[in-house]
Amino acid sequence: MSAVFVWIETFDGVANPGSWEALAAGKMIADKTGADLTALVFGKNAAAVANESAQYGASKAIVSEDATLEQFRLEPYAALLTKLVQENSPVAVVAVATSKGRELIAAAAADTDSPMIGEALTLNIADGKLTAERAVYAGKILSDVAITGDGTQFVTVRSRAFKAADPQSGVSASVTTAAPALDESQIATRIESLEADTGTVNLTDAAVIISGGRAMANNPKDAPAGSADAAVWKAQDGFANVIQPLADALGAAVGASRAAVDAGYISYAHQVGQTGKVVSPDLYIACGISGAIQHQAGMRSSKVIVAINKDAEAPIFKMARFGLVGDLFQIIPAITAEVKSRLGS
């Protein structure tokens, strides 16, 4: 029986929840083609993650635990995936479009000269061939793409575009083990160190995002005497003491406009937009952001958008479901207090 492979991304032995979305996309293909939904788990803790995959719909799993696979490196991962594809000729290989997922899927597609669709928003299958919608021109328009070539069909799916199955308990997958395809002497890359960021919420996975813009510098608090740059101090204080408390109350991630990033108010990792992250949370609250087209490109697919801006003419209101005209430094603390009293902190 044929298979649909879904690569389950792990870090330090823990699955990336986006992989359960990829598994849901893979299940659609498996159901339509009568294939076995097979989770591929490489590296530390692979057997345990394979069992977890069963709860999200995998009926089979292939695991490979080896020192060379401990951390993601493209060469050993791609060589192993390529070997598994050559041995099993799966109908499709799916992964979530993180940077690791993109690299792995594109590399194995190249190694096997197979067709690939990157960052699918939707997927369909007709006569065994996949079609998908993708966002192009920074999400300003969409494209319909279709696989026309032969061979295993490689796909990455955009984070939050597919809904993971509800986990089922008491199910298991039949697990087989694969040997790595390369040994250490065949791998050109060595990881010298990894300084992990702690406590940051990943914007692309977040269900709620609160973003601040250039307006953060209009914080009414006075910068302490001697601060090098009063505007930067005020804006950083605003992110830390106005935006962050609301984010904490809602379990949200903090985003920013490029104006705020370029002015040094917050790091680039938080930038939403055409040259930042593209996000699609359930709720996006834009605070003191005018809504330039490049910013819209990163957040227009959010389900509900709230705009808080003192300028009633700001373009951000054209995209918003709810608009609040006023000073964010008064409105946000009031929302934070309201959320805490209503939802409990």
Partner: peptide
């Protein structure tokens, strides 16, 4: 040919 863009929308 392996993948084609059928349409922009």
């Amino acid at each position: 040919e392996s993948v084609k863009v059928a349409a922009f929308k």
